[in-house]
Design a protein around this nucleic acid. Structure first.
Lengths: 215, 215, 215, 215
DNA sequence: AATGAATGAGTATTCATTCAT
DNA sequence: TATGAATGAATACTCATTCAT
């Protein structure tokens, strides 16, 4: 009879908690954030926080990894736009990165704090580092594969060191993220795209240079 | 009459304090480090710490900026090796960056914590951000100037976007630093040099491509 | 229609709860025991605990008094073995005490904690102290009565201070209980019986000394 | 120049802390006592409490063991009153026990709480139990030695089981202590002395019975 | 009556900072 | 100027108790 308003499901609560932690972390830093405030902002009691997480460190680490994941989710939906060959594939990957920069830059203050949180806690560090290591390596593998495929079918210059170029592409993203933390100009995805163009297009795309390429 | 036991000079003490702070920061994180431990490791009393610094935050911020400066000092002495033109100048800059990576990578865990320390403290943040902003912009200006000089005297391709390439070069350093924090493979300067080669040489150095360049 | 799954009777549940409390009390102490654990061990919900008891203190106090009662129950069934005079009666009482020691010694760690629980709670203290006061005084009265009866009919020496001897007998039990908490040798009923023999028999039983006694 | 009022020495502070803990323990129980209150009562800061003790448990355990020691100290000074043989020696020991009862009875509420504190903490339990075990055994050895000596030189009846009597004497003290916790009548040393007289004198002192003894 | 997730008052403990010597 | 014992504000965390289902 009563509208039986379903108790906010556990996942809704978890969402509110993670968001509250993120918000406070970006406002005051992990050290400055208090569990009382997290609870108040998430509209749950402090006890409930501890039903979801073992400790403050646990909570904030989870919040920060969640924030990474949230920022990176932007890469995924594009997977199904019928990619038409390695050039388009690489374009798609680069464009994804520009969008990742856009999504992550406002969160860098929070992300960097993760290092403070995990320093001196081997388990937490392993978890965060593992997450980042895997993310970067998976992206790298995708890029290397696209370049090799392009070299095989003649779309890309054959003498390019695919691994070095891939390292460079990933590094460009990392470098913009790094710099955006203290220089907002580098959170602009257009600026990253300009880098891609300047450093990559002329280098190894044969097409933009007409049929000539480097040779 | 008294044995005139020479007090260790203030600068020696300061050195020991900064090093102790750095050491503890890398072992336990800023939050986990205690002033007691800093004092013990630096072989001074806790009171002495407060003769040098206003607060724990001040001390660790100073330690981290000192660590940055220490890592970047490697760039400076080379300034006087009679640079013979923009190509050599750029080579020198790139080589300096490889050495900076080598020097900074082992310290990244500490450096990243700076963000945690300064979050929620406007003054400290301004100081850290200002330091980094200035460092990166000065480097960028040097590089842009070298490229423009090279374009003016025909050493570099004229159609290259000097600013975008410069952003890219700086980003490569930043990106390697970022990634080295969780993937030791990226603290290897040889890997960064390989990136420079793959992404830059063929792009805008006219020389390696003969007098032809891109067109 | 419904399968009429018989709920375990309330008394069964109560039994499980009291036993669980006792078990945890002896493992971790009252302070260390948590209601969660009691509920889990008793296989009821936490809410059910509060249907039976007002509070944690109430529950543990009840558990401890129950444990006392359980240990002392051993004294009762013997009441009906046709006692044949004060000597046999006293023997029966002493033997009962040896059996009480045997039953209580393993529970002393728990019993002593009762004082911690009731300290600072006048009502609870009154309840526990009242219980113990009554038990000891009833036993004392029984013993005094037996001795006086024996003195009246010539079985015991007439010059013995019945009250002092009774205090002594009760104290022997109390003393063994006290010491058994930290020295397991004193939980051995044979050792208590040896005390009774050494201190009591020759003192005021006329019988063992032949018809002569002390005079 | 200034009166150089010596900082209260550490031992003075320690004394105040232990006494404050004892006081609060007897008023509210260990569980009910708060560190804030201990600090206030001892006129030190909470931090100082933790300079002396690892934890609340540690502090109260130390306070309780100190309280035992304090109560038992009453036994020691008498050692040098030229004891004139085993009868006087035993009298001295028994009188010491009566005085111990007098000193300890008001502290029993606190002493019993020790069990609550050490339950579930193996190390603390070992420390408390070890202390009590040693105290009781040392007293027992003294008593057994005095009885044997008396038997050797004919002062005591030779057929008395020295160990059993000793167990009994110690148990009388323990039993009075136990009972005094809930029945103040048993904190009266005269009542314990009456027990000694009733149970011991006629039993194995040869003297009071004239040359006759038991037979 | 039974459940157990949610609550939040209560407290032990920490550690940056001070200051008498 | 150096020391380090003392301080006490600050806060993570616990767990008895409640109550909607």
């Amino acid at each position: 009879m009563s509208p039986r308003r379903l108790d906010p499901s556990a996942s809704e609560k978890l969402r509110r908690i993670l968001d509250a932690a993120h918000e406070l972390c970006s406002r005051c830093g992990v050290e400055g954030a208090r569990m009382d405030e997290v609870a108040a902002l998430a509209q749950v009691s402090k006890g409930t926080l501890y039903n979801f997480f073992e400790s403050k460190h646990d909570l904030f680490l989870a919040s920060m990894i969640d924030s990474y994941e949230e920022s990176l989710r932007i890469l995924e939906p594009a997977d199904d736009d019928g990619a038409v060959g390695p050039v388009a594939e690489l374009d798609r990957i680069l464009e994804g990165m520009a969008r990742v920069l856009e999504a992550m830059a406002p969160r860098m203050t929070v992300h960097y704090q993760a290092w403070g949180v995990v320093a001196g806690n081997d388990q937490a560090r392993a978890r965060l580092y593992g997450f980042l290591f895997d993310f970067f390596n998976q992206r790298s593998n995708d890029i290397v594969a696209a370049i090799r495929e392009g070299q095989r079918n003649g779309a890309f210059a054959p003498d390019v060191d695919a691994e070095a170029v891939t390292d460079g592409i990933m590094a460009l993203l990392g470098g913009f993220l790094y710099r955006s933390a203290f220089d907002p100009a580098y959170s602009d995805p257009a600026r990253l795209r300009a880098c891609f163009t300047a450093l990559l297009r002329s280098t190894f795309y044969l097409a933009p240079e007409g049929e000539a390429g480097h040779g």
